[in-house]
Amino acid sequence: MNRRDFASMLFTHAVGTPAVVYGLTQAPAFAQEKYPSRPIRMIVPFPAGTAPDVSARFVAERMSKTLDQPVIVDNKPGASTIVGAQQFVATRPDGYNLLYTANVTLSINPHVYKKLPYQVSDLIPVTRTLAIPFVLVVRSDSKLKNLSDLIQEAKRTPGRLNYSSYGVATAPHVAMTYFCNNAGVSMTHVPYKDGGLVDLLGGSIDTAFSPVADVLQYLKTGKLRALAVSSAARIKSLPEVPAVAEMFPGFDGDSWHALFVLKGTPQSIADQLAAAARGVTASEEFSKFLADMGLVPAGDSPVQFASFLTNDSRRWEKVVKDNKISAE
C-alpha cells in the first residue's frame, strides 16, 4: 500500500483512563531462555489496510530486524477495538504477544462503555509511535474564513452548523465536542461510517475535525480550507494554520497509535521491546514515511508514555462525561 492509499484511509478514535498507575508487576517465573527465541505476534484491533494496520506493519517489519525474529501482525478488528483488546489480555505475559492500537482503546472506551472485557491496567505502555493531528476544515468556498468566523457563526445560530465524524465516540467526534466546549458553541453532529468527507466536499456538511491525512491532499489542491489544527502547537505540514490552542490555551486534541505489552511481562523483555520500537520511531525512514501524510513521529519512553496516557485519559473522560457521550 502506498502513502496516498494509507492517507486516504486514515481514521482514528481516542484514549486511556484517569489516575491509573502504569507499570509492570512482578513477572511470573518463565523458563529462562534467550528472548526472543520464536516469532512475536502483534495484535492489531483494526481491519487489514486501515491506518493502524499499515503503520503497525511498518513498525513490525523493522522491529523484526532488530529482534532477529519475525514480528507478525494479526488483525483482530471489531467493536471499537474491544475484540482485539480482549484477545490480547487473554494471552500469556511473556512478550510474544503485543498490542498495537489507537487511543480509543484506552482513553475513550473506558469512559463510554459501562463494561469492558479488559482493564486499562492490563495494558502496559511500550511506546507511542505517532501522533495524528486533526484539522478543522471547511470547503474552500465557505464564508467561514478563519476560526473566529466559525465561532461567531455558531454562536449566532446555535446548532445550525453541522459537522461530520466517523461515528459516536470516535476521536473526531470527541475532539469536535472538546472544541465546542472550549468555544462555548453548539453544532449538530452527523456521524458517518466513512467520516463524511464526500458530503463535506459536496456541501451538505459544513465542517469537520478530520485526521490530517484524510484532508491534506484537498488542502493542497484548494478544495478545502483549514481553520485550525488540534495539536498543542502548529504542525510542520501546515505551518500557516493556527493551532486551536492559540485561541484556547491548553487545547490538545490529537489522536495517536501506540504499542503495549501485557501486565506481568518481565521488565527485561519490555525494555528490549521498547528499545526496538523506539529505534524505529526515531529513524529518518519513519519520519519520511509519515511526513507526506502530516503525521508526527512520537517515540515516548515507557515512563513518558505512561504520564501522557494519564493526562490524555483525564481530558477525554471529562469531555465524555460533561457531554453524556455513550457508545452502548
Rank of each mutant, 00 (worst) to 15 (best):
V44G: 05
Q267W: 02
V120Q: 08
T81A: 12
I205M: 02
L224I: 07
A102P: 02
A276T: 06
D94H: 06
V280Q: 04
A131N: 10
V212L: 07
F289L: 08
T25Y: 00
I124C: 06
Q272G: 10
S204Q: 12
H13E: 12
L216R: 09
Q304T: 12
D68N: 15
K145Q: 12
S307G: 13
G49L: 11
E33Y: 05
A29F: 10
K223R: 15
Q32A: 14
L123H: 07
I82V: 10
E328A: 13
I82C: 00
E285V: 14
T207R: 01
Y35L: 05
V21H: 14
A306I: 03
Y96Q: 02
N182T: 10
K236F: 03
G253T: 07
E153T: 11
K76W: 11
N103G: 15
V89Y: 03
K155T: 08
A29R: 14
T66H: 10
V319F: 04
S164G: 12
A298D: 13
I132H: 06
V320L: 03
L238T: 10
D322Q: 14
T177I: 06
K115R: 15
P125L: 03
M9N: 15
T207C: 11
R234E: 01
D194P: 03
V303K: 14
A298L: 10
M187E: 08
A245Y: 06
A169M: 10
V83L: 06
L130T: 15
K143A: 14
D68R: 15
S186C: 03
L262G: 01
R128F: 04
P117L: 08
V112N: 00
K145T: 05
V296P: 05
A327H: 08
R92E: 15
V137C: 08
V73C: 13
M1P: 11
L123W: 04
S313L: 07
S55A: 13
A131L: 13
D252P: 02
A102D: 12
A29T: 13
K263I: 01
L224N: 04
P45C: 07
N146K: 01
A175G: 09
T12R: 02
S230L: 03
S283R: 03
I205H: 00
S231D: 14
Q69L: 07
S165C: 07
G16N: 13
P211K: 02
K236N: 12
S8H: 09
Q26N: 10
T177D: 04
L130R: 11
A175E: 13
V296W: 09
E61C: 04
G167S: 03
C180Q: 15
M42V: 04
E246V: 06
V229Q: 00
A243F: 01
V296M: 14
V215E: 04
P117H: 07
V44I: 12
P191S: 02
D292N: 11
T177L: 09
S255H: 09
S301H: 07
A232V: 11
Y163V: 00
H257I: 12
K236Q: 14
K114D: 14
T91N: 12
S230P: 08
F46Y: 14
L10H: 11
D252V: 04
F308L: 11
Y96C: 00
P239T: 09
G202H: 13
Y163I: 01
G16A: 15
F260N: 03
P297D: 09
D74N: 11
T129R: 07
P239L: 09
F248E: 08
A233W: 05
T281R: 02
K288A: 13
M176G: 01
T157G: 00
V190M: 10
V89N: 08
R57F: 02
I205E: 00
S64M: 10
N2S: 09
